[in-house]
Amino acid sequence: MAEINIKQVAKRFGKTDALHSIDLTVEDQEFVVLLGASGCGKTTLLRIVAGLETASSGEVHIGGRRVDHLPPKDRGIAMVFQNYAVFPHLTVYENIAFGLRMAKLDEKEIDNRVNRTASLMHIDALLKRYSGQLSGGQRQRVAVARALATEPEVILMDEPLSNLDALLRMEMRAELKGILAQSKTTTIYVTHDQVEAMSMADRIAIMEAGKIIQADTPVEIYRNPAAHFVGSFIGNPPMNFLPAKKMDSSTWQVAGASYHGPASDKSEIQFAIRPEDLIVDANGPLQATVKLVEPLGSHLLASCNVENTLFRVALDSDAQVKAGDTLSLQPMSDRVRWFDTETKLALQ
């Protein structure tokens, strides 16, 4: 049982706040992804859990034990680094055995575990090699094997796939997900790649400027962003936003048409819709002038202008659209979301 509890963890570097009082609980065997742009504090948070960085305040508990005062070696964690950190002076075998030797396991057990994890990661044939003789993908596998071999309660991963090329990344993504689910470890995984996050995570914690904005399942985060930032960050392309003016208690005027929306005392809020949630319909209320058309194969992306705001529409790849056309669009009513203009939070 290794649940991770992060309680009011804050980190200041000099005068800047890298983390503002973070609270996060990762359930036993859960796979949580910390997702955010670079500099949002996700790596700092991971390193605080690992013990590589000291929090300015707050507590970290792993498996019910408070660990924030302990060095990394006493926290029952293993970590996979972005640049793999495979020791260049040791063979693959010795790299995987490193943590086991530190734990003073007997030679037979070490040999067993090294061989087992090596075959799990498909690097049996590389055991005698040095890191300089490995490709990036192979080094990645060694780094994961080295972490798994110690049979940790918690695995921490800091952008482990970001140095791989696109195809390899996709392959490793699926493989890692399977292996980590099988090993039943609790995992915190840091990435800036939303596809990676969506595909691997049980739960995603979206971070911005040292805060967790939303922590939820991938589908929930995609469908129901808790804040404007989440909608504009998740999805490629992200959500479209348009200003909505109040007409009466829960009726809002958006680009000349009126919609039923949330009850709010604000005079202006924001209307949001994903590009794929728009239907081309001659009677549609939204008039969009096409500026640019990008055929992407699976669909066609039209960048349009609605009331001087960039507005993207995902169309069928066979759609006959060209720059200068005007599209009449019908938003799918159950997919429309609303955000407060000032607090940037979602409105129900």
Binding site: L52, P72, G99
Partner: peptide, 9 residues
């Protein structure tokens, strides 16, 4: 850091 997480002081 990798060495620290693998049990070294």
């Amino acid at each position: 850091e990798a060495a620290w997480t693998l049990g070294c002081n």
